[in-house]
């Protein structure tokens, strides 16, 4: 039994060496397919994270009527927190609002001096909401007697929501499609190596090799090719992601990029597992036809 295992490994290795060119082609194909798949998965994960960030930033602002006591204001904040779909409530005093305005104006903040001590801004609360429940929250806020006016960019939110949801669905569908395409390409590439050796399979059958005996080295070979291809793809993804995320961070800093060290190991592990399994599967499937002698 152990001897059989050892033989299968030795056979698989020497067969890879004998069919060096074809093995190289298979490894490159596997690597390319998995790299495309991996790149897509990475992009999808980032888009999803981006969508999540955008959704988390959806907020409604309610301006409060003048002259509310601090007590009533804090009661209001608690009440708003209780509303369904509210993630976070923050009270922004009129002083705070003025200071922020000054910051936004930057160089031009001199105009605020004209205002002097009479701050025209009202107190407000900023409410981070679940995008889907935005309308409800807006209505509830408008109905409150302490609230003067509610500001929320409804259409913008609707559009963001549509885009992020489409992105999620599309990403999932495309990833599945790409995975299937990868399987087909890999199985066919390995079929090529099996086809190149059909004479050998036939002779093995003629001298009385069992199917398991024939299959062993082929499946191992497929696994090795798949494994090596996946490792190459993972390495390329590692360096490529590092380079690309650096590029995005320096030129488009407002787009959040998931950190490589947190994301890549699991994606690479997935790719390697997938490559190995697909390689073995591809070999076994391709062999079936030739074993019927």
């Amino acid at each position: 039994m152990i001897r059989m295992w050892w033989r299968a490994w030795a056979e698989a290795l020497s067969s890879i060496r004998r069919n060096a060119l074809l093995s190289g082609v298979s490894v490159s194909t596997v690597a390319l397919c998995l790299l495309v798949l991996g790149a897509f998965v990475l992009a999808a994960l980032n888009l999803q994270a981006l969508a999540g960030t955008v959704e988390a930033q959806v907020e409604v602002r309610a301006f409060l009527k003048d002259g509310l006591s601090p007590q009533r204001t804090s009661q209001l904040v608690t009440a708003v927190q209780e509303l369904a779909g509210v993630r976070e409530v923050k009270f922004v005093s009129r002083g705070e609002a003025l200071r922020r305005l000054g910051e936004q104006l930057g160089k031009d903040s001199g105009v605020l001096e004209a205002v002097g001590d009479s701050n025209p801004l009202p107190d407000a609360i900023e409410v981070k909401v679940e995008p889907r429940l935005m309308d409800q929250v807006t209505e509830a806020l408008s109905a409150m007697s302490e609230v003067d006016r509610v500001l929320g960019r409804r259409e913008l939110v609707g559009r963001i929501l549509a885009v992020t949801q489409a992105m999620k669905a599309l990403g999932l569908g495309l990833a599945a499609l790409l995975a299937v395409a990868t399987l087909v390409v890999i199985a066919n590439t390995i079929r090529l190596t099996v086809f190149a050796r059909r004479a050998e399979v036939r002779i093995m059958k003629l001298v009385g090799a069992t199917d398991g005996f024939i299959r062993g080295p082929f499946v191992l070979e497929g696994m090795m090719l798949g494994f090596v291809g996946a490792v190459v793809a993972s390495a390329a993804a590692w360096y490529g992601y590092g380079w690309l995320s650096g590029l995005v961070r320096s030129s488009l800093p407002f787009i959040p990029v998931l950190p490589r060290d947190q994301l890549l190991p699991s994606v690479a592990l997935g790719l390697v597992a997938l490559g190995t399994v697909l390689g073995a599967l591809g070999s076994a499937i391709s062999l079936r036809r030739f074993l019927r002698v």
């Binding site: 002779i203 003629l206 001298v207 009385g208 090799a209 069992t210």
Partner: peptide, 17 residues
């Protein structure tokens, strides 16, 4: 396979690797 191990087969075209 076990039947074939008790038989040796030779062909016109040798069937060598």
């Amino acid at each position: 396979p076990y039947l074939r191990r008790r038989l040796g087969v030779v062909f016109q075209d040798f069937k060598l690797l």
